[in-house]
Design a protein around this nucleic acid. Structure first.
Ligand SMILES: [Mn+2]
Ligand SMILES: [Mn+2]
Ligand SMILES: [Mn+2]
Ligand SMILES: [Mn+2]
Lengths: 223, 223
DNA sequence: AATGTATTTTAGGTTAGACTAAATTATTTG
DNA sequence: CAAATAATTTAGTCTAACCTAAAATACATT
């Protein structure tokens, strides 16, 4: 039984996990867009993932998929690899936080459990990756994430940045430049009803900055 | 033109390089044995490698293959990855020298040129891997290897161990135990005509040891 | 409730890289 | 040098993971 979980399957499961995180089922089209694979091919793979034993997803025609516990464990394994690798590349090999994603996205599929354990040890069993994303534990549970989008804050609210989306290097370079990094405090000076722009003061920075929703939806904070 | 060099092709080229090292052409059967692939499948791949452009091997029916310059460069790229990775795993992550081969054999195909450069830098641009094997340079040339098999030495000769075969963990653990490591000096106390056994004194060790040809052919020394 | 649009699935096909069985060619040995 | 044996190649299949085009279904709007 217990089928081989290929690189391709790992990528499907990882993206299904991320789409499921907000309680949504993962739709064929969303997955196709994320994975850069034709929707028809995604349907084929989802049907396969649902019919292996143990099943990795629950599939109902036209209604997208959710992960089974087996699928979730496989997904968390890959995500743990990814995030540990990202942090290791930064800490040990001097990568900057906008460079790590692509490298980790490949290597995540090929490191051994031994390698994973040694890297975790070398890093002191960290909780978060360079972008503040939570690292699943060695026993494959995902810690609770208490954060909400910066975009949901309003004038005079105060919060601490916890994590940022890591898939756009240009955004990461910009955030580094304006000092919006994990664990940094921000104060909302103004919220614009018209465009959703936030004007905010960033701890340690002289001038205020204005950020649109394309950015503030990708920054997560705790109040 | 310039075809994609897949993981599978990289493995073929690497093993062809190693078989070619002693001036021999790489035979279908030898490759099949090393790669754990049926001879018929190897023939198919060799014909393909000979017909891509630029050609990666020179193939003549029933006579095995040799690498073209393009094939050699691709092979050296993989071998450089492998040996840098092995040394990095030992130096940075605490692997022992009998544990690194399998991990490096997978990762060699998936690290970026950037990763390679950073690892080389972190290691101070080393010349040899943990087993004493020479690391191809960044511009893909293989340094001269001046060593010869320990098995070719005779009574009263003195030599320095330069490298050992890295593909048998049990042998590596044994060599570690008896102190036969790169840069260690040995003196041949006796050579047996009958079985080829060598009795030798190893620098830093109390008692003499006797090694059969299965071992002495896999240890390389300089006089 | 009917129609148009968006989403998803089905059907049929391609490619890389493996396999086995059978045929061919090369090499060794009596 | 002929027969046996070993090495290699050919021919035909298989599987995973993708593709496109067409069909089916679901959903949104009037
Ligand atoms: Mn990936
Ligand atoms: Mn990250
Ligand atoms: Mn390999
Ligand atoms: Mn080695």
């Amino acid at each position: 039984m217990s089928e081989i979980i290929t690189q391709s399957i790992q990528d499907y499961l990882k993206h299904i996990y991320e789409l499921n995180e907000n309680g949504n089922t993962a739709s064929t089209n969303d997955l196709a867009a994320r994975l850069n694979i034709a929707p028809a091919s995604v349907t084929g793979m989802l049907q396969k993932l649902a019919s292996v034993s143990p099943a990795l997803v629950v599939y109902k025609k036209h209604q997208g998929v959710t992960l089974t516990r087996a699928g979730e464990k496989a997904a968390l394994e890959v995500i743990r690899h990814h995030r540990l690798l990202e942090l290791y590349l930064v800490k040990a090999l001097g990568y900057s936080w906008d460079e790590v994603h692509a490298e980790a996205d490949r290597l995540e599929h090929f490191i051994s459990e031994d390698f994973e354990a040694r890297v975790a040890e070398a890093l002191g069993h960290p909780e978060r990756d360079p972008h503040g994303e939570l690292i699943p534990t060695a026993d494959l549970t995902m810690p609770m994430d208490e954060s909400c989008p910066l975009a949901s804050l309003r004038t005079d609210e105060t919060a601490t940045v916890k994590r940022v989306s890591d898939d756009d290097p240009a955004l990461l370079r910009h955030l580094l430049e304006i000092g919006v990094l994990p664990e940094v405090k921000v104060i909302i000076e103004n919220y614009s009803e018209l465009d959703g722009n936030l004007t905010l003061h960033v701890e340690g920075q002289k001038s205020k900055i204005v950020l649109g929703t394309a950015i503030t939806k990708r920054i997560f904070v705790e109040k």
